[in-house]
Amino acid sequence: MPLAKRIIPCLDVDHGQVVKCINFQNPKSAGAPTEMAKRYSDDGADELVFLDIIASSEKRDIMRKYVQDVAKTINIPFTVGGGIRSVSDARLILCSGADKVSVNTAAVENPNLITELADAFGRQCVVCAIDVKRNPNTPTNAKNTVKTTEGTVWFEVVTYGGRKPTGIDALTWATNAEKLGAGEFLITSMDKDGTKDGYDLELTRNISERVNVPIIASGGAGEPKHLYDVFTEGKADAALAASIFHYNNCPIPKVKDYLHKMGVTIRQ
């Protein structure tokens, strides 16, 4: 049996509460972190990701508290991201019981952070999260262009929760981040996030083919078929989703049954 594809519910956290956003905006409350973590873990989630959407230094204590509570509640791996800018930030989260930390904007602005984290905790603890937006290609730029169903595009890294375009090519950034020590990638399509019409398969596949560490695809899951597509065509190792699990319209066992029937290796 090969390694199972992972199903990862994502919990966006704000002020210690799980919230759901559409296209990174208008947070709506969905429950307490421990409650939802327990429910997902019981349901067969393979891993969890907590992203603090507006983490700031004054909220460190809130973060530490819920991370500790979650660690005591579940015994499956979980990643925590949001506002981690230094080794000491990461240490606080990891010592509170998280298995991995995810870095996004801070790593784009200071790529050495990835190396520092990998040296301190091992690369398996370091998830490099990349938020990506498609851009129509202009003939003068030297970015990696990709032929897609929408025509030729390049994939741009955006930071600050999608607010800031960086001009950085996501495919180049991913290969660099891997060299720096990233142990895993969490790739979120800003174009697809919240749309429920499927993952950006071309984005996920292009990154997966360029790096030799696992890829978690994120943004756009609306039905089980979308997960199947991203595991096969998208070459993802794990699929992250939020809303399809949050409101119980498509519980994890149902998704796993479907994937199993379709021939995907899944933990049941």
Binding site: M1, P2, L3, A4, R6, D46, E47, R123, Q124, G183, E184, N212, V213, P214, D237, A238, R267
Partner: peptide, 10 residues
């Protein structure tokens, strides 16, 4: 294979 071996296996 991708290394680290990360995830659920039998």
């Amino acid at each position: 294979v991708k290394v680290p071996h990360m995830g659920w296996n039998t």
